[in-house]
Write a protein that binds this DNA or RNA. Structure first.
Lengths: 197, 197
DNA sequence: TCCTTAAGATACACGTGTGTAGCTTAAACG
DNA sequence: CGTTTAAGCTACACACGTGTATCTTAAGGA
């Protein structure tokens, strides 16, 4: 164009394309993800994309593989309620991140690729010790705060499920809602809740 | 074409188009919903669609407006657990119906139309007395089984949230999972659960 | 039966995405 | 500095969806 100008190459370019792919899928959804859209967003030529990836799906998988992994909950010693809230806050933060929004875009598509989904589960979730609240719950159960047998698959999902539903219905839950979820749903399920004090 | 053949008209044709629209959005998602796709699935000409609707969104809204409404939970007198399971089963049935699958296709799209979503909420959900489990919970609370104040927005969402999450992760929950959700998550939240018997 | 309605079919110009080819030229490296 | 690499650009043929126009013809009512 006019005046001075620089041409991106290698890592720098690839990173820009990865970022563009994550933004694109978060905004338009996996269903509308196109090479063209990613290229335009990354301000590069479509041909540069085809030189490296054969399809938007492969490109996106690459982008997610290089995205920052989500933080892991680090439960303390004696604040189950606080640590549960913190772990849900971690989840909310991740859902708001580019990678998190991209994963939502993929997971919610009726035509989501099973292979891609399995890869996501293994890399993003399982590899990091399961769900957010589960880590915290198991920690406190093993430290004798309650019976570990109470942490069933259903109970381990309560927090995440309510956060996702709230995000779908009303938007991302704030700290007050997270506290309500912990107090009114999770803690009662392990026998430590407000009902019947 | 060859031999005898009939041409659909009026209601018959409109119904076929409606059905096609619901199937289409359930299969390809709201993001990939096109007049062309609906027309092909309904085995009619695209021009016949444009004569009645200006866009896939309007067509879909019409289709949902005419779809069978979901059944309402009918709580009995003395089986809270059973009635909660039944209400969740109702939800699962609805999610598997054409209209239910269509609504999922809409709700999960990053570019979902706020107007369309509000319309859905008012017509499909609110008009029928709120969420599935909430109806049952309020019924039993008002009959003195527990304090109505315990039925907070969060508590009223527990069942639905877990059903949706399970459907996303693993597929539609079976009766055993529904029972686990009721016993391990909903009942404890209103002080009637297994923990601390 | 005749006549009005509207479904079906075809065609069009347009826009957008695909995947490939070929060229130019900036960046990186010896 | 000169050479190699690969990013940027343009063009192409193709496929698909859009929205409109036009014509034929089956269906259903007067």
């Amino acid at each position: 164009m006019t005046g001075t100008w620089s041409r991106r190459r290698g890592r720098e370019l690839v990173d820009a394309i990865h970022a563009a792919a994550l933004e694109e899928v978060a905004e338009v959804g996996y269903g509308r993800l196109t090479m063209d859209g990613i290229a335009k967003r990354a301000e590069t030529a479509r041909t540069s994309l085809y030189r490296r990836w054969p399809s938007p799906a492969e490109l996106l998988l690459d982008a997610l593989a290089e995205a920052h992994p989500m933080e892991r909950p680090a439960p303390g010693a004696d604040d189950l309620r606080g640590d549960l809230i913190a772990s849900l806050q971690l989840m909310v933060d991740w859902m708001l991140s580019p990678a998190g929004r991209a994963v939502q875009g993929i997971m919610s598509d009726p035509r989501r690729d099973p292979v891609l989904v399995r890869g996501l589960f293994e890399r993003v979730f399982s590899a990091h010790g399961g769900t957010f609240t589960k880590t915290v719950l198991l920690h406190y159960a093993r430290h004798g705060h309650f019976d570990e047998a109470l942490v069933t698959p259903v109970v381990a999902d309560i927090g995440e499920a309510l956060v996702v539903k709230h995000a779908m219905d009303t938007g991302m839950p704030g700290p007050d809602v997270l506290a309500a979820i912990v107090e009114q749903a999770i803690l009662p399920a392990i026998g430590l809740g407000p009902p019947r004090p």
